[in-house]
Design a protein around this nucleic acid. Sequence first.
DNA 1: CCAGAATCTTGACACTTGTCAAGAACCAAT
DNA 2: ATTGGTTCTTGACAAGTGTCAAGATTCTGG
Lengths: 212, 212
Amino acid sequence: MARQVTGAARRVADAAEVLRDEKFNARRIELAEAALETLGELGFARTSLREIAQNSAFTHGVFHYYFSDKLDLICCCVRHYKAKCVTRYDEVVATATSRDELTEGFLAKLAATLQNEARMHRLWYDLRSQAMFEAAFRKDVLEIDKSLEAMIWRIASRYAEFGRKRPASSPAALYALFDGLFQSALLKHLAGDKAAVPELLDEVRRLLPTVC
Amino acid sequence: MARQVTGAARRVADAAEVLRDEKFNARRIELAEAALETLGELGFARTSLREIAQNSAFTHGVFHYYFSDKLDLICCCVRHYKAKCVTRYDEVVATATSRDELTEGFLAKLAATLQNEARMHRLWYDLRSQAMFEAAFRKDVLEIDKSLEAMIWRIASRYAEFGRKRPASSPAALYALFDGLFQSALLKHLAGDKAAVPELLDEVRRLLPTVC
DNA sequence: CCAGAATCTTGACACTTGTCAAGAACCAAT
DNA sequence: ATTGGTTCTTGACAAGTGTCAAGATTCTGG
């Protein structure tokens, strides 16, 4: 009987611990989200913990309660960013019923992303570059890159399917192409070039039938 | 006659000033080159003027004698980097006498660049990302990007010429493709992936005939 | 309701940062 | 050799950095 009580007590204690962990993790994500705001505004190089805290509802000490150090926080940010990013085009792929529909859905989403989430995306490019210097970022960044490549591949595959074809290049090449175009368009857009978005759309519209 | 003397004196003074300016500029470039070493090692975010000075033959004060501030120094670095970078493949283009020769020359240079100048290139990607945050960098970065696009276009054009064809895509798309592939390969290479270089070469070798 | 744990605030620390100014060292022209 | 200007060194300054620890506050199980 003592065993049973101990077992029950253990189970209760475990459940409590799980709950606490969940709360802890939820707060971590809240903090990471707040940090992403400032990071997107200032970039990795110019962002300090105090600045992050000031642009949020928290004080700078909290960040050290939830993260072991600055790298830990930013790694958490990167991982959290990934979840939001990787499914961006999935709905378009799922609902489109023709080549044209897929094309237009993709282009619309592309344009919206470029215009409304420019800050998050410049941060992504910033952190990907940081990964070339800071080994601690590499694992997560490489993973995200792979997920994004898979995302592009899903679009291309579906597009090719509608035309009873197969994509003409490898997933890596396709991702490189679209990512490169997006990156360049983003920079131009941020530099105030009004033509950046339409030019990107034109380019992608022309490209899609030739690569898939 | 007074006029003539004045004129001669003016000419001498002007010549002296030009000489001084040249010396001044030469020193600026020397300093920029030293700075590039440290920047390539640590990245923009972690590089301080004192660190730059310590890894060089100069003291940190000199940098403020030759540059108005840190941004001025780094802009100078970027501009100087450009000159070295943009002509990298020109010799291959000029001397190749066939498709195969151009391909092999290009691939060899690509592999060598990735392996021997990884640090300079990760810095380029870093600074290009910084340009998305720091307006002061944008003009120079956009210019370099255009030059690199033109460099890729020269290779592709020549390659197509050998096959009596024309490149199948726009300069922007071609540059995006190769730059994207290179960037991805660089990250993998820096992460210790031994397969990164051969995979890039394979990909490019497969791609060249399909895009040109 | 209350003790103990979890969470958060505050202020301090050691250190680094960009910038600047005073003066030393150097150089060239008279 | 002296003078005046250029170039460089040194040390200081204020501001900002990540980190930490002591204590206040809030929450929670008994």
